[in-house]
Nucleic acid binder design. Structure first.
Lengths: 235, 235
DNA sequence: TTCAGATTTTTTGTATACATAAAATTGATA
DNA sequence: TATCAATTTTATGTATACAAAAAATCTGAA
């Protein structure tokens, strides 16, 4: 779940089912023509219904799947309104995470954050950025945010953020960023790391907010309250 | 879950198990001497292990239970640090909920909120407040907060808040409030309802923050981040 | 006594069979 | 043809049996 947690050497059938199903949902490769059923999933993964049920239940709770009474299961990828909602949540939760990280991070975690931000900066300055570089940026970005969560020292918060974030990140990649936007985003990481290193929760919180707001702008996700005013001008 | 949602006429064995187990955990009446086991729970509730497993899995995810490898299940009520953490979460999530409610609430929901706040005010002015009155205050309080969640029109947000809140509310009751604190808390409700009626997300958000911060103060829960900086100024 | 290894018991994971409830289908009638 | 009821089919909920892994217990030797 978190970055480097190695707790389970043996992966359950249920866990595997959860992981693979989740992956399938997020990547949108769930059959939309025929209806999905527990039995069907069990057969396609070669295990019994019991672990499948566990995985499905969990994904239902996370809101990634939905079930309609006696009908099958459907993948419930969020519409525009929900994506907006999730971004608003991220705005609150991840900035809180940054703030908490500024208080709780260990020196090792601060070092890791700083290093990740530097790596990302270097990658963002690579010009022209080819596909492989972007992929590395995406990965480093995910790593940075995971490190923040780890530094909060809060299992609960980490899990909540993960819930929200994974959904909002569906098919959002740095490929859609201009070179300047990539550099700006990397600069955010650097500054967030600096704020945490400086043990300034409010600085960290604010930078994280800016970071997420700028991403929302790039993906053209209007956030209400603060964003409505802005969007009126440019749309 | 939410206030008046009547979706399931028939309650599953699994749902019942979940509800009862959760209740038991939150009220701290889970045997601490002997270890808790799935089989044991199944027997004590008179159902098979299958629905029990579902309920337990869910509570494990919520962090209300914990399991240690081949050993039993233990109830994982939060320590002081975790309670603080949860209050910080509430601060963010419920104020966000209030803000969103100010944008999305239907007129009916606004009316219900206003009425709930008035009821609570009336109860808070009842002097001397006996035990029955306090119980009614507690209930009206829970109702108000549930109404806010409903008014957000967001299943996801409602669920996240519920996760956090239920835990933070363990054994916290208005019994610990002075008469003046009760009146102040009721006044908060009135003002939050007013802010929502006025369609002012920021007013609603701020009042909700004040509401929660004041509760944290009464329960002597120190909040860091925001609190440290602020506390410096005003204390 | 104490420790290591083997055995038993307990606990959790998985498969499967059956029960129940909801949806689709069929067929009869207007 | 349209509609309604009965039947079949399908999907999900629950119980139970068995498997595997881990903990507890027991045994024997140093």
């Amino acid at each position: 779940m978190q970055a480097g947690k190695t707790e389970n050497t043996t992966e359950n059938a249920a866990e595997r089912a959860y992981r693979e199903l989740r992956q399938a949902v997020l990547e949108g490769r769930l059959p939309k023509d025929r209806k999905i059923t527990e039995t069907g999933l069990a057969e396609s993964l070669g295990i019994s219904r019991t672990p499948i049920r566990e995985a499905v239940k969990r994904l239902l709770l996370e809101g990634l799947l939905e079930r309609r009474k006696g009908q099958g299961i459907r993948c419930a990828l969020p519409d525009a309104a929900e994506i907006q909602e999730v971004f608003e949540l991220r705005l609150r939760l991840e900035s809180f995470a940054a703030s908490r990280a500024a208080i709780r991070a260990t020196q090792d975690q601060i070092d890791a954050l700083t290093q990740s931000a530097e790596t990302m900066s270097r990658l963002a300055r690579t010009d022209p950025a080819n596909d492989a570089v972007i992929t590395r940026i995406d990965r480093e970005n995910a790593r940075f945010h995971a490190l923040i969560l780890e530094a909060t020292q809060s299992q609960r918060l980490a899990q909540l953020v993960k819930f929200s974030t994974d959904i909002s990140l569906v098919s959002r990649t740095f490929r859609r960023f201009t070179a300047e936007q990539r550099r700006r985003s990397a600069a955010h990481h650097v500054e967030i790391a600096a704020a945490i290193a400086a043990r300034s929760p409010r600085w960290a919180e604010n930078m994280m907010q800016a970071h997420i707001l700028s991403a929302a702008d790039i993906f053209e996700i209007p956030l209400d309250g603060q964003a409505t005013a802005r969007r009126g001008e440019q749309d």
